[in-house]
Write a protein that binds this DNA or RNA. Structure first.
Lengths: 204, 204
DNA sequence: TTTTATCCGTACCATATGGTACGCCTCTCC
DNA sequence: GGAGAGGCGTACCATATGGTACGGATAAAA
């Protein structure tokens, strides 16, 4: 079975490449088949129809990214460090070409199905983990009172700003360099602490 | 001449409607012509080709939104009030159906031309105005030291958070209700002041 | 009134794409 | 070794779309 999964992976990798190169319009079944060296019949047999290919790509990519975020969120003992590194990973991910390409195609999908899928598999899985981490940070006196959802939204805003939107629109000038993600995430966290400060009597 | 401009406006309104209803794919020259009651020949004569229609729409919409932001930014004497109201208008605009539809099509455009156009005509015009306002706020001791670009980005993040992205992906649950924009903008500004506080000796 | 330009409605064309069918090859299983 | 299944490559079809051409109506200009 694993050989088949690997083949499937290859095909979806080709789809992602095509998506990155020329957007949704350049992803045609004929092109996928040609570049992946498979027949169109196989494509339709495995994925149903063209939309099924996109759905499969979104799911596969989401699963991969979730795995990455889960790893990042579980690896470090120090809560603050974990949060900063998770933020850095998230920012790296969100401004990466793969994520941009998939988000673009999900947004362009008229039915809204792809967008819903991305929200569900992507943010729907990662956000709760970060919120749980926020709860821990509050217990340890690193972050003050506040609803986890709001704190998460605020952290997201401080971290990402308008970078994702600008990147989605094709502005390549603003993307941080590889080494900067951690620095930016640290800064966002410090600012988050200024907005949700720990009260003195809570620190006891 | 103004009769012709009005006709042009009508046609672009139809295009925007089609865009909102079914995304880029549903905008076909035949459909535009049918709903706008004009001939395809007129479409091509006025806009060159299909891409030209999109370009015209982006420019027209950007101009309109810029006019709105300029109005909002110039109307009030009190700097803080101006900033808060401008933020509210910006948030309202960015999460509105028209802006979402246009941004989606710009992002989906494989050539990146539309995205560049949107950045140039949209953010490229509004951001400097807000930055100027930030300068004034600093002079009046409402906001502390910091580079205008960074302060703007931070304000944007605090204001918008992940609302725009979620809306672009089709999540309708998170959109603020009409009355909430001003409240949210006020909160974002207060938080901005916590991050860029005015030093005591600057207040003299 | 005649002329001219504009624009609508429709028909038309070439092309590209989603989706299907079929022949042949390869690889596995008996 | 034979048989069956799965998959590749190619050809094929219906359809939709961007773009063009043309006749006729309308309205302004002469």
């Amino acid at each position: 079975m694993t050989i088949r999964d690997e083949r499937r992976r290859q095909i979806l990798a080709v789809v992602l490449d095509l998506l990155r190169e020329g957007g949704t319009a350049s992803v045609t079944t004929a092109r996928i088949a040609a570049r992946a060296r498979c027949s169109k019949e196989t494509l339709y047999s495995w994925f149903g129809d063209r939309d099924g290919i996109f759905r499969a790509l979104v799911e596969a990519q989401s699963a991969q990214l979730n795995a990455m975020m889960t790893r990042e969120l579980a690896a470090h003992a120090d809560c603050t460090t974990t949060m900063v590194r998770a933020g850095a990973a998230l920012l790296d991910l969100l401004t990466g070409e793969a994520s941009l390409a998939i988000n673009r195609s999900a947004m362009a999908d008229g039915s809204g199905e792809l967008g819903a899928l991305l929200l569900q598999h992507g943010r729907g899985r990662t956000a709760p983990q970060i919120k749980a981490l926020i709860g821990t940070l509050q217990e340890e006196g690193r972050i003050g009172e506040g609803e986890a959802t709001e704190i998460f939204q605020t952290f997201y805003g401080l971290l990402v700003g308008d970078r994702q939107i600008r990147a989605l629109l094709g502005d390549k000038s603003g993307r941080p360099r590889p080494g900067e993600f951690e620095e930016l995430s640290r800064k966002a966290f410090e600012r988050l602490q200024k907005i949700f400060p720990v009260k003195v009597n809570e620190m006891a």
